[in-house]
């Protein structure tokens, strides 16, 4: 079966310019620097990594929110890179996004019902009175009462606003949704509500998700497979249980060991792999393996040769010379 989304050697570089009148490019931020993976239909692929690793940029590049520098993104076999605005508008409907802060993406002067109706009208999916009927349906689907249609964004709590964001994304009947930190801004007790809602909707509507988050517990819970990124590169891809049970890459190991577990007994027994220092700058990333400057097991070769992402067991890939 053909994967729903195929990402191949995707790159997103942002130019760094200097000068006021004549701007010269003095370098570039390699936010995403050659990533490849497939997402199957109905699957949730988790994308984790620390701030600055390029995970959000990757999500945006896949949806063509910004034109990628290089590489290919195929949706049901069709190449999206280079489609142009007009060509892309056909596919926009099928590819949607849910953001961390739905308040920022809602117009404060437009009622929630109108906000959800807008994409339906823009894409001409319903007409006349059917639009309102569809809005009611969507609100019910995300657990909001229909009576709230006429209310404005500020009248809603954070969790409810995220539900509105989800309803807007669903309004155009998409197949693939990039969820960029969808629960990070929510209170702990509300996060589980939204995660359950996303899972229910996936079942009901046969959705495919790319779930981007820094909360490894949430990502593990919702994802079938997980991609770990470090400084614009993929360091490991594996089944979600596998990556926590048997992480292969030293960075994944450190990441998994650093996540606190809400159990004092387990916390006392766990040993943490503490990494030295901070994330290096993506403007001038380290040579060879990008992780070698912080890696506890790095050898000479790591500083000069970049390790390829290779298979280690079924569906488990990692990029490290020391495995």
């Amino acid at each position: 079966m053909q994967p729903l989304v195929q990402v191949n050697d995707l790159k997103m570089h942002f130019p760094l310019r200097k000068g006021i009148v004549v701007q010269r490019q003095i370098g570039s931020v390699k936010a995403v620097d050659g990533i490849s993976f497939d997402i199957d239909e109905g699957e949730t692929l988790g994308l984790v990594g620390e701030s600055g690793c390029g995970k959000s940029t990757a999500g945006r590049a896949i949806l063509q929110v910004r034109k990628p520098t290089a590489g290919s993104v195929r949706f049901r076999g069709t190449e999206l890179v280079g489609l142009g605005k007009a060509g892309m508008s056909v596919y926009r409907r099928h590819l949607q996004m849910i953001f961390q802060d739905p308040y920022a993406s809602l117009n404060p002067r437009i009622s929630v019902g109108e906000a959800i109706a807008e994409p339906i009208r823009v894409h001409g999916l319903r007409h006349g009175a059917d639009v309102a009927q569809r809005v009611r349906e969507l609100m019910e689907m995300v657990g909001l009462s229909q009576s709230m249609m006429t209310r404005y964004p500020h009248e809603f709590s954070g969790g409810q606003r995220q539900r509105i964001g989800i309803a807007r994304a669903l309004a155009v009947e998409p197949e693939f949704i990039v969820c960029d930190e969808p629960v990070s801004a929510l209170d702990v007790s509300i996060q589980a509500q939204v995660i359950n809602l996303l899972e229910d909707l996936q079942q009901r509507l046969n959705l495919t998700y790319l779930f981007i988050a820094h909360d490894l517990g949430a990502v593990k819970h919702v994802s079938n497979r997980i991609v770990v990124m470090y400084l614009g590169k993929i360091v490991e891809i594996a089944d979600s249980v596998e990556i926590y049970r048997r992480p292969l890459h030293p960075y994944s190991k450190a990441l998994v060991s650093a996540v606190p577990v809400p159990s004092p007994k387990l916390e006392r027994k766990r040993s943490r792999i503490l990494l030295n220092g901070d994330l290096p700058s993506p403007i001038n990333p380290p040579s060879g393996c990008r992780f070698h400057t912080r890696c506890p097991i790095a050898i000479k070769r790591c500083a000069t040769e970049e390790p390829p992402l290779v298979e280690h067991g079924s569906k488990h890939k990692a990029a490290c010379w020391m495995i």
């Binding site: 409810q160 509300i190 359950n196 819970h221 577990v261």
Partner: peptide, 25 residues
Amino acid sequence: IGLLRSVPRVDDDSDNRLVPIRGTP
């Protein structure tokens, strides 16, 4: 109890649904 049940844990390999606390603070 509700908080402890609603948090997805990295050491939990089951596919069980989360048990959220309903409503809002």
